[in-house]
């Protein structure tokens, strides 16, 4: 049995040849397996057995994520700087400038950011909101301590401080006795902007900063131990850059 696939240059793969097995026997064996068929050709049996195994595999029947194409379009939109027009049928409806109501669109960005993580590593990527100028969106990426984590944050100046909304995916709940702590830092130092645990199944975190983020542009999230003091543990699980 020869599987005739040639991998040439980076993007070249070609298949050649025609089926060399008896096609009727092959179909019968695919259909009935060993229960009813007895193909004389051993290669027919081998080939059909391999394909029958594949027909029973999860991987062959799994359906892609229903939101995957929207996530992809959001990522393309982001990378192209918003120059790619979205079709009206799928464009998100205009939302009031209330931070919590931007969430569904931002969740798409979370998924988009997850796709970008593989390319960008742990470097946060600025992704500006395409639909309004009220908040500034930015991406956060997981570090080696949380390689599956990613997220999108939105910062917005308010009369009482800087609101930082964070939508995170892939960050496991903090184990009992531990918690997550968010920080902003810059040349002037390190300031905490809140703590959270992610144990309730929610992926949305509201943080507040009393210091301007143009002077504290790096947002990090650390894993902290209860009772271990108020200093950063240094165990950074998420990181991103605000502004740009």
């Amino acid at each position: 049995m020869v599987f005739d696939v040639v991998l040439g240059n980076d993007f070249e793969l070609r298949t050649t040849g025609a089926i060399g097995v008896n096609e009727d026997e092959f179909a019968d064996f695919l259909d009935n397996g060993s229960r009813a068929s007895d193909p004389r050709d051993e290669s027919t049996r081998e080939t059909a057995t391999r394909f029958r195994d594949l027909l029973a595999a999860d991987a062959v029947w799994a359906e892609p994520s229903p939101t995957g194409v929207d996530d992809l379009l959001a990522a393309i939109q982001t990378e192209s700087g918003g120059t790619v027009p979205a079709a009206p049928a799928t464009a998100p409806a205009a939302q009031p400038r209330v931070p919590s109501r931007r969430r569904s669109r931002r969740l798409m960005l979370v998924a988009a950011a997850a796709g970008i993580v593989a390319v960008a590593g742990v470097v946060g990527i600025l992704v500006r909101s395409a639909d309004d100028g009220a908040g500034q969106d930015f991406a956060v990426a997981g570090t080696e301590l949380a390689p599956n984590a990613s997220g999108v944050g939105t910062v917005e100046e308010t009369g009482s401080g800087v609101s930082i909304e964070l939508d995170v995916s892939g960050l496991p709940p903090a184990e009992p006795g531990t918690y997550y702590q968010a920080w902003v830092k810059g040349p002037d130092g390190l300031v905490t902007v809140g703590t959270f645990h992610m144990r309730g199944g929610d992926d949305h975190v509201d943080l507040w900063s009393g210091v301007p983020l143009d002077r504290y542009p790096t947002l990090t999230v650390t894993l902290q131990q209860e009772g271990a003091g108020q200093e950063s543990s240094g165990r950074v699980v998420l990181s991103g850059e605000v502004g740009g």
Partner: peptide, 11 residues
């Protein structure tokens, strides 16, 4: 079987 014919070649 017909759709997969181009993939497989047996000796």
């Amino acid at each position: 079987a017909a759709l997969l014919a181009h993939v497989v070649r047996a000796t």
